Computed example of a mutant assay.
Amino acid sequence: MPERPEDDDQQLGSLRPTRYATLAAWAAVGLVGGWFLHPVSELVNATAPVVSWAQPLALFLVAAILGVTAHATWRSVHVRRERLEPHRAVNRLVLARACALAGALVGAGYLGYALSWLGSRSELADERVVRSAVAALGGLATVVTALLLERACRVRNGPDQA
């Protein structure tokens, strides 16, 4: 087996940050899906889903957990200069990436669902708009805190990596 130069080893073990274009693509899919959920569900079931307060609260809970984890990771890696165990770093990076993508998809889905109810004279239209908009904000908070966690896991390149 031929030996590789040291520079190749460093390149093989690195990850790139989540691209904003990827997040935008997931958000676009969510927006379209949320928009079409309203007419399709009324066509199929004769009624559209009602958004309860549990959905937005769950998204804000996920965002809060990610925020606390990001803060703790940032303090460990960048302030105290502690070395994060490799499996913990990978777990946090996977969690951050998955939550960023899911938050973009779900948050934009709720936004699309809210937009589909604007101008509707349905009895629960206003309630669906408000709760879906709050859930969309929860999705945005999830994306932001996930990206902060991803950023907290970054280490400097060089011999004295944290």
Results as ranks from 00 to 15, higher is better:
residue 3 E to P: 05
residue 88 R to D: 15
residue 46 A to S: 13
residue 24 A to M: 09
residue 29 V to M: 13
residue 12 L to N: 07
residue 19 R to E: 12
residue 23 L to C: 04
residue 133 A to W: 10
residue 83 R to G: 04
residue 124 L to M: 10
residue 69 T to R: 12
residue 158 G to T: 08
residue 117 W to D: 05
residue 44 V to P: 01
residue 21 A to H: 10
residue 139 G to P: 03
residue 150 E to Q: 14
residue 7 D to T: 14
residue 23 L to N: 03
residue 66 L to I: 00
residue 151 R to K: 10
residue 68 V to G: 07
residue 95 L to V: 09
residue 21 A to Q: 12
residue 4 R to N: 10
residue 68 V to S: 10
residue 50 V to Q: 12
residue 42 E to T: 08
residue 21 A to I: 11
residue 145 T to D: 06
residue 3 E to R: 13
residue 29 V to Y: 02
residue 1 M to L: 11
residue 103 G to V: 03
residue 134 V to Y: 07
residue 66 L to R: 03
residue 107 G to I: 06
residue 21 A to F: 10
residue 102 A to K: 03
residue 64 A to C: 10
residue 99 C to Y: 00
residue 78 H to T: 02
residue 78 H to C: 03
residue 53 W to C: 00
residue 137 L to D: 05
residue 18 T to N: 04
residue 77 V to F: 02
residue 97 R to N: 03
residue 11 Q to W: 10
residue 29 V to A: 13
residue 5 P to N: 14
residue 58 A to L: 15
residue 139 G to I: 04
residue 29 V to W: 03
residue 154 R to Q: 12
residue 158 G to W: 03
residue 91 N to S: 14
residue 147 L to K: 10
residue 60 F to V: 06
residue 59 L to T: 00
residue 113 Y to I: 04
residue 19 R to Y: 06
residue 64 A to Q: 08
residue 33 G to V: 04
residue 162 A to V: 12
residue 13 G to F: 13
residue 151 R to I: 02
residue 88 R to T: 12
residue 33 G to R: 00
residue 118 L to M: 15
residue 9 D to G: 06
